[in-house]
């Protein structure tokens, strides 16, 4: 589903990822961990072609992301749900409108889309704030809204970059539970976090693996996590 082959990336001449190789099979659940600044966000961005590898190849759904033009990248992103720590909403639109945005840009309309939106709002527990503007939401509500937006197009891959970074433990557990549910539906999940407790908590809920970024490389972490 996601495959890195000898991928190198850096900023301003400094290498952050050096000939990184790994693959995430369809339906897998992976945590991505590592110290701050190690390249977790960069790796997530490489996955959905927000960045292009300086060397090597990133393949998503079997396609080399470097070979895609801008339209190709846009179509690819419609099948990838991305959740950022800062959520990235359009603050002048309501929560419901923000969640529905991916369906708007992909030209989906009609009762089914509306039903999906209603179901999603209920699933993430945001029915009461559907018409509120994003700045009025709490951190947890924002993350759940971002997750709902990432899911509205029923993508096969969920990329979550520190979604629990700004929320308390209970909310982290709740978000984790939602992601685990998605994984059980067959979605491939890659969750970047530096929260080891969250990773340990997940072990009881889902068969997950941990990728650790260390020394510019990605390692499959041991069972001691």
């Amino acid at each position: 589903m996601i495959e890195f082959q000898n991928v190198t990336y850096g900023y301003g001449g400094a290498t952050l990822l050096d000939e990184v190789s790994f693959s995430l099979p369809q339906g897998s659940f992976h945590f991505l961990t590592g110290p701050s600044g190690s390249g977790k966000t960069t790796l997530i961005k490489l996955c959905y072609a927000a960045l292009q590898a300086h060397a090597g190849q990133v393949r998503l759904f079997g396609k080399d992301t470097a070979s895609l033009d801008r339209d190709g990248v846009a179509f690819l992103r419609r099948n990838v749900g991305v959740v950022h720590q800062d959520c990235q909403f359009l603050d002048h639109l309501s929560v419901a409108e923000n969640i529905a945005l991916p369906t708007v840009v992909s030209g989906q309309k009609g009762a089914r889309t509306a039903a999906n939106l209603t179901d999603l709002l209920a699933w993430v527990g945001l029915n009461d704030v559907a018409n509120a503007l994003p700045p009025s939401l709490s951190g947890g509500e924002r993350q759940r809204a971002a997750l709902a937006r990432a899911l509205i197009n029923a993508p096969d891959v969920i990329l979550a970059d520190e979604p629990t970074g700004n929320v308390d433990w209970d909310m982290s557990q709740r978000l984790l539970k939602l992601l685990v549910e998605l994984n059980k539906m067959g979605k491939t999940v890659l969750l970047a976090t530096h929260d080891m407790a969250l990773i340990r908590a997940a072990k009881t809920q889902v068969q997950s693996r941990v990728l650790r970024i260390q020394a510019k490389q990605v390692w499959l972490a041991g069972a001691d996590l």
Binding site: R77, V82, L90, P102, R149
Partner: peptide, 16 residues
């Protein structure tokens, strides 16, 4: 700029 960033993130084509 932020609007453009978000629209691209959710799969909007540049022409859109």
């Amino acid at each position: 700029n932020q609007v453009i960033k978000v629209m691209r993130l959710i799969g909007a084509r540049d022409s859109y």
